[in-house]
């Protein structure tokens, strides 16, 4: 089973399936009046467009690192590796664009130039920073695959059926939300063991509550509308009303919530990695690179390039996601903007 999931071909297919799902969702909602109008408003929003382009660039980089080809020397190689194959690996730290290693008494010449220097293991920092997009993409994608179906389904069920169903779902998420998020994350990863998968599960379990609340509220409002009453009086089944009428009308909230939630996930990864329950050591991630700076900042001479490039890359993605989320919110709900 685990061989199946770690095989490079399966992973390629999973990534493709994820992007296909995203494209299909966008395609199927694009006929909707609300989405068309939102797109017209979004098109005129310059900040939002720039943010969208930046986010897409990050996603593309991440996808290039996840998708692997069989043509490598030591096993399958990622597409990004092919582009960056000319980059050499040194023995240890070297400053940006330096010609010698950092900390040796006798200047030891480097094999190549490194725009952002090299880290403790001599790996090129720029390459590691780009590779870390993959971790962010996997975290965001897998977490979304867990929490979006959960949150949307429970939210709609609670808002549509009300009474007992609503009480039960509300009780469940109120209880879950009573444990401060970071403590629940730590406890779950602590029990499941440190890995990317358990981080996604933990983030998924804590993340659906906010979405569920949002969807529940909106569904409560939507079910008061005449179109739901009309669908009911025409004898439509519960399933039809939920999937054909309610779901498309709350979908924009899911998208906005996911974009803003993604930025939270990336920031949380940095916190968890600092606490020692984040991305396992050896996997390129911005959190791990920033965490490594704890010892690097007290070195002499100071090693700052690792921290700066990881923090900048992370900041860029989170800022773009935040701005994109705001722009989407303005586009869907112009009164609030």
């Amino acid at each position: 089973m685990s061989v199946f999931f770690t095989h490079w071909l399966t992973q390629n297919l999973l990534v493709l399936a994820g992007f296909a799902l995203l494209a299909w969702t966008l395609w199927s909602v694009s006929h909707h009046e609300r989405w068309r109008r939102a797109w017209l408003r979004f098109r005129a929003d310059r900040t939002g467009l720039v943010a969208l382009v930046v986010v897409c660039l990050y996603l593309l980089l991440g996808a290039l690192e996840v998708v692997r080809l069989p043509a490598g020397k030591g096993g399958p190689q990622s597409v990004l590796d092919l582009f960056l194959s000319g980059i050499t690996t040194e023995k240890t730290y070297s400053a940006p664009l330096a010609t010698t290693l950092l900390s040796s008494a006798q200047p030891e010449p480097l094999k190549g130039r490194h725009l952002l220097g090299t880290d403790a293991l001599g790996k090129d920092v720029l390459r590691e920073t780009l590779k870390a997009c993959k971790t962010a993409l996997i975290l965001g994608g897998l977490t979304a695959a867990i929490y979006i179906p959960l949150g949307t389904l429970f939210g709609i069920l609670a808002g549509y059926f009300r009474r007992r169903v609503d009480d039960a779902i509300q009780y469940f998420y109120t209880t879950l939300a009573s444990i401060p998020e970071i403590l629940l994350l730590i406890a779950i990863i602590f029990v499941l063991g440190q890995s990317l998968t358990s981080m996604c599960i933990a983030l998924g379990v804590t993340g659906w509550v906010g979405l569920c609340r949002l969807i529940r509220g909106e569904t409560l409002r939507q079910t008061e509308r005449p179109y739901v009453a009309a669908a009911r009086s025409l004898g439509q089944s519960h399933w039809n009303i939920i999937s054909r009428h309610l779901l498309p009308n709350v979908m924009h909230l899911v998208v906005i919530n996911f974009v803003l939630g993604f930025s939270g996930i990336v920031l949380t990864e940095a916190v968890l990695s600092y606490l020692g329950v984040g991305t396992p050591v050896g996997t390129a991630s911005w959190g791990n690179m920033i965490d490594g700076a704890r010892s690097e900042l007290s070195r002499d001479p100071l090693v700052w390039w690792n921290l700066v490039s990881a923090a900048t890359a992370l900041f860029g993605l989170v800022l773009a996601l935040n701005l994109l989320g705001d722009a989407l919110r303005r586009a869907f709900d112009p009164k609030q903007g």
């Binding site: 940095a270 916190v271 600092y274 920033i290 700076a293 921290l307 992370l314 900041f315 800022l319 935040n322």
Partner: peptide, 14 residues
């Protein structure tokens, strides 16, 4: 404010 939100806590501390 959005920019402030986007900086990881660890970086503020450093």
């Amino acid at each position: 404010a959005v920019a402030l939100m986007s900086v990881p806590t660890v970086v503020y501390i450093f």
